[in-house]
């Protein structure tokens, strides 16, 4: 029983990282209106940026977050310029394949630049364990949960309360109309895309801290998790994507409690496929609008 409850805590913690990935992903997809396969690589670069920051500046988490965010922001700009801006009027599959190409590009470049080895990311946060009743939770998990909650809240406030956020939401709904009221859609979409990527970068960093390692090919699995969570939440809905991420994290960890850890990824996908068979739109609720 204790084992299961600990796995549940692990699940929630990991799920919250997935949730952050999914939030970033949904922001990208929602605002640009295009699907990206580069998200995993963006997250990987965020992790590496944090890794080198920790190497130069010591284990300063805030600095790490900032570095991850900034690095992913820059990559997000590149992704936008290469994969989206040119293809707003083209069929969707073209920009999709373009992002696949870009992700291959980044991954292989990263393998050349950073090497193919796993880099250790040890003891960024003290390994202290707290015992609350039957569950034990360590400091790392608390920090991760805190970072995710803070970031998600900030993003939510930004999107709903500030003028910039409203502009972003406007272009995510209707680009032509946004043009007409004088919004510079191209540059705003880029900012939106970069925000999504930046959040993804932070999530990548958290992932690296959680597993205490980062490596050039880590993006593949992470992007799959981001997809699954985001698809569960209906692709563009930020809040539901976060819920989807939590679900995937919990189900994975409960799944491996009853079988082998090798099947971790398989659980996530099987769950995703099952949900999609039953409810193609994911958790999203259809509103009373014309489809």
């Amino acid at each position: 029983m204790e084992y299961i409850s600990n796995q549940l805590i692990n699940g929630i913690c990991q799920g919250s990282i997935y949730a952050l990935m999914a939030i970033g992903y949904s922001v990208v997809v929602g605002i640009t209106g295009m699907v990206t396969f580069t998200h995993g690589e963006v997250m990987m670069l965020g992790a590496f940026a944090a890794y080198y920051t920790f190497l130069w500046a010591g284990n300063n988490l805030l600095l790490g977050i900032f570095a991850a965010f900034a690095a992913s922001w820059l990559v997000g700009m590149a992704v936008y310029k290469v994969c989206y801006e040119h293809f707003f009027d083209a069929p969707r599959h073209i920009s999709l394949i373009c992002t696949v190409g870009f992700s291959m590009l980044i991954k292989n470049l990263a393998q050349i630049i950073f090497g193919a080895n796993r880099m250790p990311m040890l003891n960024i946060i003290d390994n202290r364990v707290y015992q609350i009743g039957p569950v034990s939770i360590n400091l790392l998990q608390i920090v991760i949960l805190a970072v995710v909650i803070v970031l998600a809240t900030v993003l939510s406030l930004f999107l709903n309360k500030t003028k910039g956020g409203i502009v972003l939401r406007a272009i995510s709904q209707e680009k032509t109309a946004a043009y007409m009221v004088g919004i510079n859609v191209r540059s705003t979409a880029m900012v939106g895309n970069c925000i999504g990527c930046g959040i993804g970068g932070v999530a990548g960093m958290l992932m690296a801290i959680y597993y205490q390692t980062c490596y050039a090919t880590m993006g593949g699995t992470m992007s799959m998790k981001a997809f699954s969570s985001s698809v569960l939440g209906g692709m563009t809905d930020v809040r539901l994507s976060a819920v989807g991420g939590l679900c995937i994290g919990v189900i994975e960890n409960l799944g491996i409690t009853f079988s082998s850890a090798n099947f971790r990824d398989a659980f996530a996908f099987c769950f995703l496929i099952l949900v999609l068979i039953i409810r193609p739109q994911g958790f999203a609720v259809k509103k009373g609008a014309r489809p």
């Binding site: 997809f227 990824d265 999609l276 068979i277």
Partner: peptide, 27 residues
Amino acid sequence: PTIRLKGIYLSIITLGASEVIRILALN
């Protein structure tokens, strides 16, 4: 599952299925 879904969902599901097949083969 892709009958009811469109474009991108198919890409994601094929990607996932390919991984699941590989994981099965590995384990």
